[in-house]
Design a protein around this nucleic acid. Structure first.
Lengths: 244, 244
DNA sequence: CAGAGCCGGATAGTAGCGCTATCTGTTGAT
DNA sequence: ATCAACAGATAGCGCTACTATCCGGCTCTG
């Protein structure tokens, strides 16, 4: 296929495709002449991945390039890829790594991970990101929100375990590698959106009088978890919440 | 306090402070003369909030302005504020709301929320954000990741309930309102960072031979959840995972 | 086999965002 | 009286993610 077809099938303008070629996000097509090249369905798929990372995942061009380069590296393992993706997404713009408050916040998060026995190196960039947020919460006097950290960690440990199991179960390397990236980047978007929706629901239930609730169909019991879920997890899913 | 002191105490340059004044993120100081104004500790706090939202939370100036305007509105309820924050953060750049695939993805997420009985309007912008990601996952052939949606929703329902309880417990309106914003925006950053760390841990446990694990101190049992956690939740926290 | 039009590659230009610099006239501290 | 600091306004800058234009070569059509 030539570039015009690649453009029309992907919905991306030819100049943009050329831009991604220049930036090294997309491999050149196979040359069929001095100034002609042929593109394949793999290029089409790659373009969709690029747009998903950039438009939906909010990655910068540079971050997307780093992630995609790790995908292309044939002997990078799934585990290393996750680190690479994590590093690329974290970016560098930290607030002030020199202040004692920031260092205390970072130490707090590192200690949390250590107590849970997480196998992560102390220099993982995500610790810096978390430290930024924790330090900001503390200087804003929102210490009680920081107190939720252990619960956040517990929850994310469950989620991450299931995500990794899912991707590892695929077996085939190429599908695993792309699964790591998409579940990390796009899964985050979905999780964040669902969290906001759940917050809106939770605050409606607590702050709006029951007789002013909008009319909604009743909640279907027990049909919203996929097969294989343990009874304990289902029970926990409804624990610690006010009556609905 | 005059602007020079506000600048040195906040660590933000005077031109930047003037910029925030122009953009309406920061209220003008009380005028003490034709071209003099006095700033208070509230201005200092507000500046810290602005920087937290922008630098740490990644909000644009426009989104931060919308959120802060909602905070300032004296008769906006905590619940409405959450909607405003949610809306401001969602932004508008959606992928292609006209394609059938996108509409199917949106319907899928709306149906998920409806089945759980969430009290959220169908037009909530977070549905659009989630639809973007779900549609992207489907076109990339990552349907098994989409299958995790119900579990994501269940998890976020728990987290959001606890967050809202925490903030509502404060009682005082001003502290509630700021708690909504900070927990929504900064909590998301922390959650995302912890998720990536947990993913790295999970993939290390599954993909690296046990005898190559880095040496880490043992996991402390049971001391990582705050008081008030039910036994069921603690058990669920360790369920469905491979042996550690 | 001519010529219209698409091709790859290169260079230059653009729009928006988040500041930053400079200028003007005024004011308060010494 | 002097002079740095101030508020307010206008203009400019650096970065990112494209977008436009040009060029000589290719290829498809009639």
């Amino acid at each position: 296929m030539r570039i015009a077809e690649l453009s029309s099938r992907s919905g991306i303008s030819i100049p943009s495709i050329k831009f991604y070629l220049r930036e090294g996000l997309l491999a050149p097509g196979e040359a069929t002449g001095r100034n002609q090249a042929a593109y394949t369905d793999e290029h089409l798929h790659r373009l969709r991945l690029i747009r998903a990372l950039i438009d939906v995942g909010g990655l910068s061009i540079a971050a997307a390039r780093d992630v995609l380069a790790a995908i292309d590296e044939p002997d990078v393992t799934g585990h290393e890829l996750l680190g690479a993706a994590s590093y690329a997404v974290a970016g560098s713009p930290r607030r002030d790594p020199d202040s004692p408050a920031w260092q205390a916040a970072r130490a707090e998060v590192v200690e949390l991970a250590r107590r849970r026995g997480w196998l992560v190196p102390d220099h993982a960039p995500q610790f810096d990101v978390a430290a930024d947020a924790v330090a900001a919460l503390r200087t804003l006097g929102q210490d009680d929100i920081v107190a939720m950290l252990p619960r956040y960690a517990d929850t994310m440990e469950q989620i991450a375990g299931q995500e990794v199991d899912l991707v590892v179960a695929r077996g085939e390397r190429m599908r695993m590698v792309e699964g790591v990236v998409t579940s990390t980047v796009l899964g985050e978007i979905v999780l964040n959106a669902l969290r906001r929706l759940a917050q809106e629901d939770a605050s409606a239930r607590r702050l709006i009088p029951r007789d002013e609730w909008p009319q909604v169909p009743g909640r279907d019991p027990g049909c919203d978890l996929p097969p294989g879920t343990s009874k304990a997890a289902k029970v926990a899913g409804s624990a610690d919440r006010p009556p609905r």
